[in-house]
Design a protein around this nucleic acid. Structure first.
Length: 761
DNA sequence: AACAACGGGCTTTTT
DNA sequence: GCCCGTTGTT
């Protein structure tokens, strides 16, 4: 049997359409990733060379997931040759190979947001401008948006509209900052995230031979999350696929939530314009959620004016209504929801990983962290301060960066006096001054005091010189030493390891461990590369690390924790039970979105994304007062709750106190002061309340689970993974295990007495 | 040059 | 409430 038989009609049509431009509009939970992966697998089965396939995703995680699934269908020897990754990582590699053509060093640094903001702040001050007016974050936003629309510093300056906008927002000199920023990045041999796309555009524009090379190489181009691409990405894709026009874009306008980053839904319209004979496929059957959830989500998105018409529907059971919870404070919200999770888990025999708590802003995670820690519930926070953004990690990586690229100013400023080596502010001031005066990099100054005299004391000069010599000695090893050896040597001889080791506070110990973890990461990185026969220097590691975020952290197979994350990072994921918290006016929708319809509609799409993450149940909570900046402020329920068709809502616990309803505060009290580890007792003093735990018709659990009689080749259905096919059986009786291939999630090994498989044959 | 104490500003979302 | 940068002290 072919894997194509796993698909429904429209999915299959999209998968089997090989040549020419095509667009797939895929509703939430409609098997979008399955279509993308199967389409790639089908291309390969039809004889397309994997080397000629380019698949672009939005996150590293999505890329990895897709690659894994393709491996499971066509095998890794084929799949590894596909060019697959995020826009940023794929084009960073292409830029690495061609950097010299556009004047960048071949080992250019990638500036992260912190580096960028710090540089912008420096420049702002140098121009004598007030960084409270020219806030680095805002300035970055303007520059970023210019770059994503391919507006060069010169074009920015000449654009009357932009200049008058800047005047209106009292930042008339922004164009100067942009120009200087771009120059300084260039001199530092650094690109920011936006440059990775912007400079790719320049490369493809100015070097036809490069363009031709990649046009010929990538005969088939696929783009995931097309609704989230910006103009810069759009143009790259258009150019690369101009020769063969075998371009397949997949997206859902209802899930466009990144316009703040320049994402442009017009790209969907542009696609139609550019390829008038394109084929359109719509995936409208939802396989993920109950019909209540699907319909509730539809009723929300109906309030948006801007949308492509489509009808998402499902054959799934009705399921329970969406519960709306009202809590008094954010702390109570944390306690109640943690308790609910513990209760539902016990009552239904679920795993912690079946639950997710989704919020609008990272700051909201705190109350949930606290309550879950108190109750001993395992949880994991995704996003927030990434591992790679921690100070100790950034410090060590700054050494690596400076070793690879001496002109990396942000790295240099970070570590020239860390660990402390007596190079203080006055010295650094003098060096910076000289660098501005001569128009050369900081490194040029400190490595050439003869050529560029600086007015600092002899002893300071000497200390700086020692620092320079140290970095130079690392650099000589860069291309010869194995990545791990050099990484470790730098960690030691720079003094970082010792500095952290001497700090015996709990935080200090954690920092030391983090650095060890980074070193282990380097080791793992080079080991992985050695398998494929590549060398894997420290510079290669840097490229990898610059584009990694916490969201990409591999989730261990057996990791069984409640997931906490922002709605943005939940995109593409699904959980049986989802809690959307802090659904209040001014928080969700965010107060910053209230000025315009388009921004409000984006918030609504975000709410749509949140609801459609849920498979079985969805709970929405809001509080009446919340701590903000240490102050208790009052809050009211979000308008979005009222926009859901009320027939799908259960508002028993949402009635306001003024109308005589009860809050849930009584619910939590009996349990709070109990021994936290007693959570295994499901009815721990909590009065049974209807609606908190699904009962009756939704309760499919049988007390004595019957082990189905299976044979290899049988089609089966799993509660969570959907339909699948048995590929292997191990053991007998109560211990029997089965390998089942599920088109939606890949191959899983299931212990039959737990798995509750339904035999379809 | 290094460190402790203080005050202001901040929060939208991320590659 | 917390992080950052600025200020004052040694």
């Amino acid at each position: 049997m072919s894997f194509l038989d796993e698909l429904n009609g429209s999915q299959r049509a999209a998968v089997e359409n090989i040549d020419g431009p095509m667009m797939v509009i895929a509703g939430a939970g409609s098997g979008k990733t399955r279509v993308l992966t199967y389409r790639i697998a089908n291309l390969i089965n039809k004889g397309v060379d994997p080397f000629s396939i380019l698949a672009l995703t939005f996150t590293n995680k999505a890329a990895k997931e897709m690659k894994d699934r393709i491996v499971s269908i066509v095998g890794s020897s084929e799949a590894r040759n596909i060019t697959m990754g995020t826009f940023h990582s794929v084009f960073a590699k292409i830029l690495y190979a061609n950097a010299n053509k556009i004047g960048y060093p071949s080992n250019f640094t990638i500036y992260d947001t912190q580096d960028t903001k710090s540089l912008l702040k420096t420049i702002t001050k140098e121009f004598g401008l007030d960084d409270k007016v020219y806030k680095p974050g805002i300035v970055y936003g303007r520059i970023s948006s210019a770059k994503n629309n391919l507006i060069s510093p010169e074009a920015y300056e000449d654009n009357a509209n932009i200049i008058s906008e800047d005047r209106l927002s009292r930042m008339p000199d922004l164009y100067k900052i942009y120009k200087e920023y771009q120059l300084r990045c260039f001199r530092a041999g650094a690109m920011d995230f936006d440059d990775l796309l912007y400079q790719t555009n320049i490369l493809l524009r100015d070097f036809p031979d490069v363009l031709h090379y990649y046009q010929h190489k990538f005969k088939y181009v696929l783009v995931d999350e097309y609704q989230d691409t910006n103009y810069s990405q759009y143009l790259i894709v258009k150019k690369l696929s101009a020769l063969y026009e075998n371009i397949c874009v997949v997206g859902d306008d209802a899930q466009s939530i990144y316009s703040f980053r320049g994402a442009n839904m017009e790209n969907i319209l542009n696609f139609r314009k550019n390829y008038p004979d394109y084929k359109l496929f719509k995936l409208e059957q939802n396989y993920r959620s109950t019909s209540t959830i699907v319909k509730a989500a539809n009723s929300i998105i109906l309030h948006n004016k801007d949308q492509i018409k489509k009808e998402v529907w499902t054959h799934n059971e009705e399921g329970q209504k969406i519960k709306v919870l009202r809590c008094l404070t954010d702390n109570e919200e944390g306690r109640i929801i943690s308790k609910m999770i513990a209760d539902i888990k016990e009552k239904e025999g679920l795993n912690f990983k079946d639950f997710a708590i989704l919020y609008r802003t990272n700051a909201q995670s705190r109350s949930f962290e606290e309550s879950m820690r108190k109750m001993n519930l395992p949880y994991k926070i995704y996003g927030g301060l990434s591992f790679y953004q921690r100070k100790e990690i950034k410090d060590l990586i700054a050494y690596y960066r400076l070793t690879a690229n001496h002109n990396d100013e942000e790295a240099l400023k970070r570590i020239i006096n860390y660990p402390k080596r007596g190079i203080g502010n006055t010295t650094i001031e003098a060096i910076t001054h000289a660098s501005r005066q001569y128009g050369v990099s900081l490194w040029d100054i400190i490595s050439n005091f003869d050529k560029y005299p600086v007015n600092i004391s002899g002893s300071a000069k000497n200390r700086v010189h020692q620092f320079v010599t140290k970095i130079q000695s690392y650099t000589t090893q860069l291309d010869v030493a194995p990545a791990y050896d050099l990484a470790k040597e730098i960690a030691q001889s720079s003094g970082i390891l010792k500095d952290l080791y001497d700090d015996k506070t709990p935080e200090g110990i954690t920092r030391y461990e983090n650095v060890q973890e980074l070193l282990a990461g380097v080791k793992g990185f080079s080991a992985q590369l050695e398998e494929t026969g590549e060398k894997g220097t420290l510079s290669d590691f840097l490229l990898d690390v610059a584009l990694l975020t916490d969201a990409d952290e591999v989730k261990e197979e057996d990791e069984n924790t409640v997931s906490l994350m922002t709605i943005h990072s939940s995109k593409g994921l699904e959980y049986p039970h989802v809690f959307i918290v802090g659904v209040e006016e001014n928080l969700f929708p965010s107060q910053f979105s209230l000025n315009s319809r388009t921004e409000l509609e984006e918030e609504r799409r975000l709410f749509y994304v949140a609801i459609t993450r849920a498979e079985k149940s969805c709970t929405i909570s809001y509080v009446t007062s919340r701590y903000k900046w240490g102050q208790l402020i009052s809050a009211e329920p979000s308008r979005f709750i009222g926009e859901i068709d009320p027939q799908y809502l259960d508002t028993e616990y949402a009635v306001t106190s003024t109308t005589g309803g009860r809050s849930l505060s009584g619910y939590r009290r009996p349990s709070v002061d109990r021994n936290p580890s007693s959570m295994s007792v499901s009815n721990s003093g909590v009065p049974p309340r209807r609606n908190l735990i699904p009962l009756g018709k939704n309760d499919k659990t049988k007390s004595a689970v019957e082990i189905p009689h299976l044979k290899v080749g049988y089609n089966v259905k799993h509660e969570r993974f959907g339909k699948g096919k048995v590929v292997n059986l191990v053991g007998t009786g109560g211990d029997q295990k089965a390998d089942v291939f599920f088109p939606r999630v890949g191959k899983k090994t299931l212990i039959l007495k737990f798995a509750k498989l339904e035999v379809l044959d």
